[in-house]
Design a protein around this nucleic acid. Structure first.
Lengths: 200, 200
DNA sequence: ATAATGTGAACGAACGTTCGTTCATAATAT
DNA sequence: ATATTATGAACGAACGTTCGTTCACATTAT
């Protein structure tokens, strides 16, 4: 699709992606214009089309560049610990760190779901799923304590739910109950999850 | 903002809201035009402005009309059961039913978050929060078994997370792992949550 | 060394289309 | 008759994309 050589213009391409990322995450895809992107990137409108064939191609570039699966999943394979509990806590910490580093990433997901019907997301997940399974296999591996009736996909879903729930309830409750959003809350939520999946 | 009398044109107003709901949830706010709404509602473009002063007012109308807090929360106050466990299971069932009845509701939330920076959501939550607290107080009331170190807001967050996680992991995993999305999965996830918040 | 040529990037005017909104007027209901 | 609702043409602004052109710089030829 994008047959443009990234020889010298690679840095320009990155500037476009960064500018577009800021605008897309704050206004949505259809709420952002190519003129705004050009202005934010400090270049002329026509220049954008030297690097991307279309507006949608710009979004794809942003979505791939900012997706954390390349950074967070591999980092999870590096956590140390003898028990599932210690590894899960570290893995959740990694996710929270990534969330704090770029909380607007979820907005890209939401744009994907609503404005693109998850078209790019599905493609990306097909690439990330095997690695995700591998990570889950490592993090949750603890035959002595992991409840035997739980399958790995279900544990993965609950773990992801822990994360989604932490973030989305922050959005939903946010301005009304700020006191709820301490690190203490995150810790308690992990505790609930861990008690739920482990014996004893 | 909407100072238009809903005397006889109330049913027309509802048709506009229904048409706009279908389009907004599938294309987003900026991705949907007033002409599309008029066509879908089976009326002329100008007629829309007899019932709504602006496009954003149409969205507000949709968002309020389709928000489940008026229906789901009161229903939760009606669940029976002697223990928190039985009430929580029923409450989660109510949420899943509402989700299955209109899975596109989340899209309205996402549009809100991305395209309106949660402007209407915050206002709506201020209205819903007291009732939400009341519901949580009833559902989770079980001093003998609810773990004493858990505060009600944190239990609420985890419960909402259970729900968000169920839905969002369905979107994320969806096409790749359909086998995971049985009622069995939902039940297992509730089990994890319940073991997490209860003693024994 | 100098000139000639090639090339990707930047530029902003211009294209045709669509946008949200307004308006004069027609139809309908009370 | 009077008030309410429906209509679609019309408005100016903004949209994504294309276009011809300019420019800086690398390569090649002389």
């Amino acid at each position: 699709m994008s047959e443009i050589k990234p020889n010298r213009g690679e840095s320009t391409r990155q500037e476009i992606i960064n500018a577009a990322h800021d605008l897309f995450t704050q206004q949505g895809f259809h709420g952002t214009s190519m003129r705004q992107i050009a202005k934010q990137a400090g270049m002329a409108l026509g220049s954008l089309y030297n690097h991307f064939p279309s507006k949608e191609a710009v979004f794809e570039g942003v979505f791939i560049a900012y997706h954390p699966y390349r950074s967070v999943l591999p980092a999870m394979l590096e956590v140390k610990g003898d028990t599932a509990e210690t590894r899960v806590r570290q893995a959740f910490d990694l996710m929270l760190q990534a969330l704090k580093a770029s909380p607007e990433f979820f907005n890209l997901m939401f744009i994907e779901i609503v404005e693109f019907k998850s078209a790019h997301l599905n493609e990306l997940f097909m690439r990330a799923f095997p690695l995700g399974l591998q990570v889950a296999g490592y993090i949750f591996d603890d035959p002595d304590r992991l409840r035997p009736e739980l399958s790995l996909p279900i544990v993965m879903r609950s773990f992801l739910g822990l994360f989604f729930g932490y973030y989305l309830s922050e959005i939903a409750f946010g301005p009304q109950a700020p006191a709820v959003f301490t690190d203490h809350a995150a810790e308690q939520m992990v505790n609930i999850f861990l008690r739920g999946i482990l014996v004893e």
